[in-house]
Simulated scan of single mutants.
Amino acid sequence: MLWQLTQMLWVGGLWLLHIGLLPVLRRIGLAPLLIDEIAGMLDALMVAFAAVCVVFQALVLVQAEGLGCLWRDIRGQLLLVALNACAMYFAVRFGWPEAVRWQVFSFLVLGFSGLVLVLQPVPGLSGRVREAHP
Score class of each variant (00 low, 15 high):
11 V>E: 00
134 P>H: 15
87 A>Q: 08
33 L>S: 15
17 L>Q: 08
50 A>T: 02
69 C>G: 01
51 A>F: 05
77 Q>R: 14
100 V>F: 06
119 L>W: 06
112 F>A: 03
43 D>V: 03
21 L>A: 15
8 M>L: 14
130 R>K: 11
55 V>N: 06
26 R>K: 12
134 P>T: 12
5 L>I: 15
130 R>L: 12
72 R>H: 09
82 A>Y: 01
46 M>W: 07
26 R>T: 08
45 L>K: 14
34 L>D: 14
119 L>A: 13
82 A>R: 02
118 V>H: 02
40 G>Y: 08
94 F>P: 09
17 L>V: 01
25 L>T: 07
75 R>H: 01
25 L>P: 08
11 V>N: 00
94 F>D: 12
128 R>P: 01
45 L>D: 13
22 L>R: 09
14 L>D: 00
133 H>N: 11
3 W>Y: 12
122 V>R: 06
58 A>Y: 00
90 F>D: 05
118 V>I: 10
56 F>D: 07
107 F>Y: 14
114 G>C: 02
85 A>D: 04
48 A>Q: 14
106 S>K: 02
114 G>Q: 00
43 D>E: 10
22 L>G: 08
114 G>F: 02
70 L>T: 07
70 L>I: 13
92 V>G: 07
104 V>I: 14
96 W>G: 02
13 G>D: 03
8 M>Y: 11
87 A>S: 13
32 P>K: 09
132 A>I: 15
133 H>D: 12
77 Q>P: 03
52 V>A: 11
89 Y>M: 03
95 G>F: 11
35 I>Q: 03
69 C>V: 07
2 L>C: 05
98 E>M: 13
41 M>A: 15
12 G>C: 03
111 G>W: 03
